[in-house]
């Protein structure tokens, strides 16, 4: 059994350390900073810089014999193009509720997912959709019309 070293500190007391360990704190702080910056890089990675889908701006060639009020859907696109006496216009067929593709019918459009209904100019007539279907920007260009899905225009704008 050893004698108690009375003049010494108890083992439960702190080891003598410099009161302020600048070197240690600086080392830990710079490591934390490096981790913080690297987190930025890691969190940035999952957000793709460009989307892999085709351009949202494209030209369509409307059939010459498109009856008034009947929708023309360019292949592979979620757009309904119409022609009437005043001109050509395009309405997005992506439901404003949760993104299903609405189907043109005799009264306008209907959504198969949650029963939203839209009139022929896109206004909501039924169901949970919060907003009318947007009209997309159409411009004359080349041999036909150029539709820009990223630009919306006021309802009723015809080219």
């Amino acid at each position: 059994m050893t004698t108690k070293p009375t003049e010494k500190r108890s083992r439960f007391e702190p080891e003598p350390m410099p009161r302020r360990d600048f070197l240690g704190l600086a080392a830990l702080a710079s490591m934390a900073a490096a981790f913080f910056v690297s987190m930025f890089g890691m969190l940035k990675l999952p957000k793709a810089a460009v989307s892999a889908s085709p351009s949202k701006k494209y030209s369509v060639a409307l059939p010459d014999a498109l009856p008034e009020g009947e929708a023309f859907v360019p292949p592979g696109r979620s757009v309904a193009v119409f022609r009437d006496g005043e001109g050509v216009f395009a309405i997005s067929t992506v439901c404003t509720h949760l993104g299903c593709i609405v189907k043109p019918n005799a009264n306008g459009f209907e959504c198969p997912c949650h029963g939203s209904g839209f009139s022929k100019d896109g206004a909501v007539t039924k169901g949970p959709a919060p907003k009318p279907l947007p009209w997309l920007k159409v411009s004359k260009g080349g041999s036909g019309f150029v539709i820009d899905e990223e630009a919306t225009v006021k309802t009723g704008t015809k080219v």
Binding site: G41, M42, K44, L45, K47, A48, A49, V50
Partner: peptide
């Protein structure tokens, strides 16, 4: 070429 930080990673 296009993934953010992808080349570095």
């Amino acid at each position: 070429f296009i993934v953010p930080t992808g080349r570095f990673m």
